[in-house]
Nucleic acid binder design. Structure first.
Lengths: 261, 261
DNA sequence: AAAGAAAGTTCCAAAGAATGGAACTTAAGT
DNA sequence: ACTTAAGTTCCATTCTTTGGAACTTTCTTT
């Protein structure tokens, strides 16, 4: 096992709730010997990957990582463009918006725009949630064929909530509906009382795929506002899809039942 | 030499003009053998530090780095980062540096780096001084619109010294000059015989705004040294501004009269 | 379509870094 | 001042890393 593995594991220890780590954190989180943890953190600091907080024994990511991370957004310019759309919509309506990407059968938030409302959904960047049980995940899975989706779940899955798909057949039916309508929706799935609207999008030249999502408390959003969210998201996504010549993009297609749910 | 060094070097290869790298890029940029470059890139991809662009041979930073980089924002406050810059400049030239924030129409020093010279300016953290009559204050006021500045002084103000602005018109003119040049300067304002150079900076995500300041005895600093102070401060501030995507940052713009005062 | 060039990958033994237990030092709490 | 927790350094063993060369793939040219 290379030291790179250990270094990457250290980076994965950081999260929205853990902005810095200590030697003992690594010992407990990664189960590595103290000696290794101590040397690894120092080595990573010496290389400019981490920096010490003040003159304490706490380590946090260094500027280099912030700079390189920033570049990711330009390198994967699809994320940057999608983020701009979500940011605009989020600003407009005041609800939280974010961009997610799929990693296997999980989705991860890449960027987030916190809403302005007192009651708003708080997303944590980097958290992995099951793809089949989220609107962002289904927006991305809908871009795959049914066979590819089945291949992602060789052993099936178990629904984490009432409103999530309970088996493969139900998932495929909801993906078909997502393709038809041009957007995915969730309700009480990951979090009770929360709705989310997502649209999937890709760039064939780079192979990148992202989901644009707006999420809001179900109780406070009128049907009309929900529709305008769907329209704004779909419209922004369609513009980018036209730009990237995304052939697997599903345009908005509101049925009469959608417009009056 | 650990493989971490090589990995960090790879990360340093990325820049605003180089969003992805190939094996040969590393060979030319870092002078490493092809074999190493090939294996290193693959190892970094396997660890989730890099990802391949589509299915090409190009590597770019991966999501993990973007996430960890985002955390840097929260982990290191704007004050931390600004303080690091001022500390560096202060160490370099030996003059006193500090960071100030604005509270209404006053500014307060948040951190200080005492100079090394026998004749040096001593700042006291926590002291409140009028914003209009200091370089730090004007660096921060310059980030506001003229109307916002007027609103801060509904009853006008009286200049505490000869060289401070005497009325609102004079203040606004000096703020305009600050915006044009990218830095604010004071001379004999709060303290006789003391000059100060300040640059304003903000983080739109958090709303924080700080001024970076270097202050020194007017008599002992040559024009060339003053210029290098200005350049160092502005350069450090610009790096942070790029990271926070501060849209109200005013970049350095030295006129011919500035370079030879 | 075939040859040539460029870019990338794999192989190998030598060289050198990483490992983890234990002893040691430093910091923190009582 | 004592006790405990946290972090660092040391060491021989083990296993990764190294870089040249041969090999394969991919792109360019005629």
């Amino acid at each position: 096992m290379s030291i790179l593995t250990a270094a990457a594991d250290v980076l994965r220890c950081f999260s929205s709730t853990r902005h810095d780590v200590t030697v003992t954190d690594l010992v407990t989180l990664l189960g590595m010997p103290k000696s290794n943890a101590s040397r690894l953190l120092r080595a990573m600091r010496d290389e400019g990957l981490l920096e010490t907080v003040g003159d304490s024994k706490r380590y946090r990511p260094a500027l280099l990582l912030a700079q390189v991370g920033q570049l990711y957004r330009f390198a994967a310019s699809l994320i940057d463009r999608a983020d701009a759309v979500v940011g605009r919509v989020s600003d407009q309506i005041g609800h939280t918006g974010y961009i997610s990407v799929r990693r296997g059968n999980e989705v991860v938030a890449a960027t987030a725009h916190p809403g302005r409302h007192a009651l708003r959904v708080v997303t944590s960047i980097g958290d992995r949630i099951p793809a089949f049980a989220s609107s962002t995940g289904r927006a991305l899975l809908a871009r795959l064929s049914d066979d590819e989706v089945r291949a992602l779940y060789p052993k099936g899955f178990t629904a984490p909530s009432e409103t999530a798909p309970r088996d493969m057949d139900e998932l495929l039916a909801r993906l078909a509906e997502t393709r038809r309508a041009g957007f995915a929706e969730s309700h009480d799935e990951a979090v009770r009382g929360v709705r989310a609207i997502s649209v999937g999008l890709g760039d064939p030249t780079t192979g990148d795929e992202v989901a644009l999502c707006i999420t809001f408390p179900a109780a406070t959003v009128e049907p009309g506002e929900r529709l305008s969210i769907i329209r704004s998201l779909a419209e922004g996504a369609a513009e980018i899809a036209a730009l990237t010549q995304d052939k697997r993009f599903f345009p908005l297609n509101l049925s009469s039942s959608e417009t009056a749910p």
